[in-house]
Amino acid sequence: MDVRERVGWNVRRLRVEKGMSQDHLAYAAEIERAYVGYLERGKRNATLTTLEKVAKVLGHDVSEFFAIPPKDAEPIAPLNPGRRKG
């Protein structure tokens, strides 16, 4: 797993733990919704400014995005479909 995939895995993990949709995260962090998807899939290099915005919305420090996932970590399951609060 390269660093972009690691950051993406952790962004998705923290977002799902918070029960937040990609749409809500994007809106609250003032970034494009599609960019959140690219970021979570490790397809984009995020700037430190963008990571800081995302971390603030998720209530974590930027350093949390660089945590190494456990070796036996499963892919993060998506949230249930449909409308959600927040």
Rank of each mutant, 00 (worst) to 15 (best):
T49K: 13
T47I: 04
L48M: 14
R13Y: 12
L14M: 08
S63E: 12
V16W: 07
T47F: 05
A55R: 00
E64F: 13
S63C: 09
M20T: 06
D72G: 07
R15M: 10
H60S: 10
H24Y: 09
E30C: 13
N10D: 05
W9A: 08
K18V: 11
V57Q: 00
K71H: 13
W9S: 10
Y27Q: 14
A55G: 01
Q22E: 09
T49G: 10
I31T: 04
W9P: 14
E32T: 11
K56T: 09
T47L: 03
L25H: 01
K53R: 15
F65S: 01
F65A: 02
F66L: 11
L14P: 03
Y38H: 15
G19E: 10
A46E: 01
L48K: 06
E64I: 07
R13T: 04
E64R: 12
E64P: 02
L25Q: 00
A46S: 04
K18R: 14
R44F: 07
R15I: 09
I31Y: 00
G42Q: 03
Q22G: 05
L25W: 01
G37P: 02
R41H: 15
D72K: 13
Y38N: 12
Y27K: 15
A67C: 08
Y35V: 05
G42C: 04
E32I: 07
D61Q: 12
A55Q: 02
V62Q: 04
V36W: 01
D61E: 14
L25Y: 01
Y27R: 14
E40V: 08
Y38E: 10
Y35L: 11
A67N: 07
A67W: 10
I31V: 15
S21P: 04
A34K: 13
V11C: 05
E52V: 09
L14C: 06
L39Y: 01
D72Y: 14
I31E: 01
T47H: 02
A73E: 15
R44K: 14
V54L: 03
M20G: 03
E40N: 02
A29C: 04
L14R: 12
E30L: 15
Q22I: 12
Y38P: 03
K71A: 13
V54N: 00
Y27W: 11
R12E: 06
R13P: 04
R13E: 05
I68G: 07
T47S: 05
L51P: 00
A55C: 03
I68P: 06
Q22Y: 09
D61Y: 13
T49H: 12
A55M: 03
V62A: 13
V54A: 01
E32Q: 14
R15D: 04
I68K: 12
L14Y: 13
R12V: 05
A55K: 00
A67P: 02
N45A: 12
A29T: 02
R33G: 03
G42D: 02
V62N: 03
K53W: 06
A34M: 11
L14W: 11
G42E: 01
A26W: 00
E64C: 08
A73W: 12
N45Q: 10
V62D: 03
Y38Q: 14
A26P: 01
R12Y: 09
